Amino acid sequence: MNKMIKKGLTTIEAENLLEKYYEGATTVEEERQLQQFLSQKDLPLRFEADQAILGYFAESRPETKKQASIVSFIRWSSVAATLLVGFFLAKFLFSNQVQLNYAYVNGQKITNIKEIKAQAMASLQIIASSPDEVQASTRDLNNNEIINQELAVFSSNH
């Protein structure tokens, strides 16, 4: 039972160190010895759980590095692709000077933003200068006769 596996710790010493490790009482040197012991091939099956818990797999280390480099490559490639798509999208959106601001005034399309603002301010001035018109419009909203006339127009067309 006190068989020596390669050079280093015996299985009994390793079991004692594992117990000490799980209690949180190992030194850095003892943990290094455990790592070295658990990284060996052909360990008894009773150490398999400890290898899994502590993450010491000697044969999987190069594969893990390879997987990490693949993941890193994919991550950086996706970042580069996103930046490239963002660049072309921004270039497309800002190079095509599409008129997004326009208004129709008396049936005429106006695209000059300054003229649109001037027309809007003029309309607001007219409304502000004649409060009677606004009050008359709101009074009509409460007039049942006008409401019934409007409803009759819609019901006769359908």
Rank of each mutant, 00 (worst) to 15 (best):
K3R: 13
K3I: 12
M4L: 15
I5W: 08
I5E: 03
I5Y: 14
I5N: 01
G8A: 04
G8L: 03
L9P: 04
T10P: 01
I12K: 11
E13R: 02
A14W: 02
A14R: 02
E15F: 06
N16F: 09
L17W: 02
L18Q: 00
E19K: 07
E19M: 08
K20G: 06
K20M: 07
Y22D: 02
E23I: 05
G24M: 02
G24D: 07
A25S: 13
A25F: 07
T26A: 07
V28H: 06
V28Y: 06
V28F: 05
E30D: 04
E30H: 05
E31P: 03
R32K: 15
Q33P: 01
Q33K: 13
Q33W: 06
Q36W: 05
Q36L: 08
Q40G: 01
Q40R: 10
K41H: 09
P44K: 03
L45G: 15
L45Y: 10
R46P: 00
R46E: 14
D50W: 02
Q51G: 04
A52M: 14
I53Q: 10
L54D: 00
G55D: 09
Y56M: 12
A58C: 15
R61D: 08
R61Y: 11
P62F: 04
E63T: 12
T64D: 06
T64P: 03
K65G: 08
K66Y: 01
K66V: 12
Q67R: 15
A68P: 04
S69Y: 08
S69P: 00
I70E: 14
I70G: 12
V71M: 11
S72P: 03
F73H: 12
W76G: 10
W76T: 14
W76N: 13
S77D: 11
S78C: 14
S78K: 15
S78H: 13
V79E: 13
A80E: 03
A80T: 13
A81M: 12
T82R: 11
L83A: 12
V85A: 10
G86I: 08
F87N: 04
F87E: 08
K91V: 07
K91D: 09
L93N: 05
F94W: 08
S95K: 12
N96W: 09
Q97T: 10
Q97K: 15
Y102P: 02
A103H: 00
Y104S: 01
N106T: 01
G107W: 01
Q108F: 02
Q108I: 06
Q108V: 14
K109P: 01
K109F: 00
K109Q: 06
I110T: 06
N112E: 11
E115T: 08
E115H: 04
I116K: 01
K117I: 07
A120S: 10
A120L: 04
A122T: 03
S123N: 06
L124K: 05
L124P: 01
I126F: 06
I126K: 14
I127A: 14
S129L: 03
S129D: 12
S130F: 05
S130I: 02
P131Q: 02
P131D: 00
E133Q: 09
E133W: 06
Q135G: 02
S137C: 04
S137K: 08
T138I: 14
T138Q: 11
R139W: 03
R139G: 05
D140P: 01
N143G: 05
N143E: 11
N144P: 08
E145Y: 06
I147Q: 11
